[in-house]
């Protein structure tokens, strides 16, 4: 299992569009991913769960990945978040 943290960089935060991009890449992997922010723990394959985090710009989201492709997936998630989901 890997534990890591991501910082949300895009201005509007983790709203519907970025959240669905995030859930999309995570859903395609075979690993289980849990996101935690402010005491709220959610399964990253659930879109409503990810939205519930209300992760605004500059907030930190904790990440736990467990599964066969965890290293690769962490890299993908980090790249996506750092690219600001293609937004500002």
């Amino acid at each position: 299992m890997i534990k890591s943290e991501i910082r949300i960089l895009n201005k509007l935060g983790l709203h519907a569009r970025p959240a669905s991009k995030l859930v999309k890449i995570i859903s395609m992997s075979n690993s289980d991913v849990t996101l935690t922010k402010g005491g709220q723990r959610v399964n990253a394959k659930s879109i409503l769960g990810v939205l519930l985090l209300q992760a605004e710009c500059n907030s930190i989201v904790k990440l736990e990945i467990k599964g066969p492709d965890e290293d690769q997936l962490l890299q993908q998630i980090t790249d996506l978040v750092n690219s600001k989901f293609g937004e500002e």
């Binding site: 509007l12 935060g13 709203h15 519907a16 209300q54 605004e56 710009c57």
Partner: peptide
């Protein structure tokens, strides 16, 4: 509607 609610909450919190 959900996205509107979300964006508003995050903005207020900021």
């Amino acid at each position: 509607e959900l996205n509107k609610r979300l964006l508003k909450n995050m903005e207020t919190k900021n």
